[in-house]
């Protein structure tokens, strides 16, 4: 199972990324656990500077922009 985290401050870009992740999981059929992290202290523990951040299996793969659905699907295949 993939472990996906969307880190952000609750901004619209972060919410869109979270929705795109859910859509990507639906399209790919890959089993994944998705967590949204908005707590500022937790964000700092991840050393997040720019948001949103998409993490898959503890790797920060997309930073500071919305990850598109197709892009996430490809990342989930790896």
């Amino acid at each position: 199972m993939k472990n996906i985290k969307v880190l952000g401050t609750g901004c619209s870009k972060c919410n869109t990324t979270f929705q795109n992740v859910q859509e990507a999981i639906k399209r790919s059929g890959i089993e994944a656990e998705v967590t949204k992290i908005e707590d500022i202290e937790e964000l700092m523990n991840y050393n997040v500077l720019v948001t949103p951040v998409l993490m898959i299996d503890d790797k920060q793969l997309v930073k500071g922009r919305i990850a598109e659905v197709n892009e996430i699907v490809e990342l989930l295949k790896k």
């Binding site: 964000l43 700092m44 500077l49």
Partner: peptide, 13 residues
């Protein structure tokens, strides 16, 4: 907000 994250980043470094 942004400066808080940057300060945290510095302390973590």
């Amino acid at each position: 907000g942004r400066s808080l994250r940057a300060a945290g980043f510095l302390i973590n470094h």
